[in-house]
Nucleic acid binder design. Structure first.
Lengths: 385, 385
DNA sequence: GAACTTTCGCCGAACATCGAACAAAGGCCA
DNA sequence: TGGCCTTTGTTCGATGTTCGGCGAAAGTTC
């Protein structure tokens, strides 16, 4: 059972979403009496969740006192663990970034080493932001592999040796921890940051591998086993010769991922090892690299065309390392999607590059944590305590 | 804002779902005081929504009075309009079928003719069930084409001439009307009837065309334009020569739909016009037909393998005309899905024939109507009136 | 048939919400 | 400058809702 409508948690949600900034607004929106709203707001202020600011503009009578989240006593961390990097964003309740950092870090070194590093950086960030460790209320984390979201344990992740079934949340004491696949948190970050009004969105990450985060009805769709969005191993036609590390052939990732494009360039006598090299070549004007990236776009577009027919999203966001040359990638993708998908599904469909960029994962992970903390049920618990 | 927890609507939901059959159960589940529950139940009985039955079994003390939906004064209709048929199920609040009928009916005759026919049949069914027209509270309808669900208007349906943008709900006065794509209501019917505990389910209808209804988090996913699940025009590899009525080539429907299989049989010198002919041939033991159906299964399986990776459902249900020979179809589908999808996604995946059968659409349409009528908000409105 | 168990209605107490009245704080205008 | 209007915010008694204890009802167990 959820809480009653108009509970402190609901009131905070309205303030947090910016739907209401004054007691009067709240009364109008919720339909509750002004006196009741005042009582709710008092409780929220008492709990340190909301604060009053200077009076606002008068509309002919007494000017209303503005309300906003009291962000000073709280902190949240969004942690983006990649195969070879670690990014952390320390955020406040309004999803504003207080401090951030980025390091090279091999996830293959295992959970103890990696999480110890995270811990040190987290302390540094808290100090830079001038907040005590106790201010840290919740932590979100994105990792490059499948996760059982309910328990925060990686589920046979192929590129995270030593992490299988490791109980990540237990490492952080005294605060709620949410671990999810990196593409899911990127999708969440992009959605909340750039397309908050959109109901159905796909975030496609094109790097060494290819993955997809799914936002349906405004919330992440993780699927039955938490493996939804694993589109890198969908078969594309006409590439039966391309073997994939998963054991099958003709996987999207094996023909259009950053590593695959690099390999094909190398075969053409243009040395490239990774997606980053490919990006550098394209930016340097190499026509072969440009051609292959566009061709990769077409192959990705073929898969996305299927998904557009199936899922009918409003927006598809293209992110990941290769999206830094998104003009060429997007050209190939759009060309194929608009040719192969049904008109009804593509009529209002936007296919766009990520606006949130390199920080989408860390931000999304932080937002995952913040949204849990600000959920009406959790707020009601805090206020009643 | 939704209603408070433990409202009459919530109480009815628990009774309706079978989660609670006595006042004591309700008190335990909701956490409300027994006296409060009694008051709620009284209000529901007063409104004619709930009734008491004979006392139940004693567990050592006073036996509880059993509660159940008072189904006698209400009726709901589920209408399944196909290209060439019309099935109607008259149902009560418990989703039990009171009366049903089935006629050949060409949807191409246009909305006035078709809806007039529906009206006549509806009156007959109501009379057979001994309920007045006023007992009809809500109507659900599935139609063979895309629909804007919010308004109940068909959206450029290819095989429903004259229906484009026709305001179907206006035809039924005095009761709520919900119009949806036929595959969506079939998915709903199958889910509620056979897999109520499942969170993510796909219902694949294989008839002349191929479509898919999507149940995500227990509710229908319709997509941004209501065109989600239109998988019939997803491209399959290796069939570039197969032209499709949509203008593209190599569409799944153009190579694995009932009409396509029939055409290929005809080319082999075995005359067949429709999916029904194909079914008859297979049931008659024709090995060519059997081979082609299995091959069609493999092609469908190729597409489903992609969707399993993307959506990660718990159950895929195969329905539609061709599923009457489901052993052969399923063999082809499973073979491909289990080969091409990721182990994590297929580990707990079931691929099964429809258990609800020919009536899935009419039942699902009725359930669509009933669930709206029994939604807590609607019940609270009724009780407070 | 006495003791026990469970259900259920009744009723006063506790609690939450409401709305009226009033105070506060500004604008508007003579 | 001062009076009046508008809007905001608080206080407080009235109202309505929910709770929990008590006793009656209706069975089982011994």
């Amino acid at each position: 059972m959820t809480s009653a409508p108009g509970s402190p948690g609901d009131v905070l949600t309205l303030i947090s979403a910016g739907s209401a900034t004054t007691r009067s607004d709240l009364a109008k929106i919720t339909g509750l009496a002004r006196s009741t709203i005042s009582q709710r707001v008092d409780a929220l202020i008492e709990s340190g969740l909301v604060e009053e600011t200077e009076s606002g503009e008068s509309t002919g009578g007494r000017p209303p006192r503005q309300l906003r989240l009291h962000t000073e006593d709280h902190a949240f961390a969004g942690i983006d663990l990649g195969a070879t990097h670690c990014r952390i964003a320390l955020m406040d309740m309004s999803s504003d970034v207080l401090a951030e950092c980025e390091d090279p870090l091999l996830i293959a070194e295992g959970p103890e080493t990696v999480l110890a590093h995270v811990d040190r950086r987290l302390d540094e960030l808290l100090e830079r932001a001038g907040r005590p460790r106790a201010a840290l209320r919740a932590v979100g984390m994105g990792v490059p592999g499948p996760v059982e979201f309910a328990t925060g344990r990686p589920n046979n992740p192929p590129i995270m040796p030593g992490w299988n079934d490791y109980p990540i949340p237990e490492h952080f004491e005294g605060c709620a921890v949410f671990v999810d696949n990196d593409v899911n948190v990127m999708a969440l970050g992009e959605h909340r940051n750039a397309y908050p009004g959109t109901r159905h969105l796909l975030f496609v990450k094109i790097g060494t591998g290819i993955g997809c985060g799914i936002v349906a009805e405004g919330t992440l769709h993780r699927g039955a086993q938490g493996s939804a969005g694993d589109i890198g191993h969908i078969r594309v036609s006409g590439h039966e010769d391309a073997g994939c590390r998963c054991g099958n052939s003709a996987c999207l990732e094996a023909v259009a991922g950053g590593a695959a494009v690099a390999r094909r360039l190398t075969e053409l006598g243009i040395p490239a090892e990774s997606g980053a090299d490919v990006v550098a070549l394209v930016q340097g004007g190499n026509t072969q690299a440009l051609r292959l990236v566009r061709e990769a776009g077409r192959l990705i577009g073929e898969v996305l065309a299927s998904l557009v027919n199936f899922f009918n999203p409003e927006v598809i966001v293209i992110g990941g390392a290769l999206s830094r040359v998104h003009e060429h990638l997007l050209a190939g993708i759009k060309e194929t999607v608009y040719r192969r998908s049904l008109p009804l599904a593509t009529h209002h469909l936007s296919i766009v590059p990520s606006r949130t960029g390199i920080n989408a994962a860390a931000l999304g992970a932080g937002i995952l944590a913040i949204e849990h903390y600000l959920s009406p049920d959790n707020i009601n618990r805090i206020v009643n305590a």
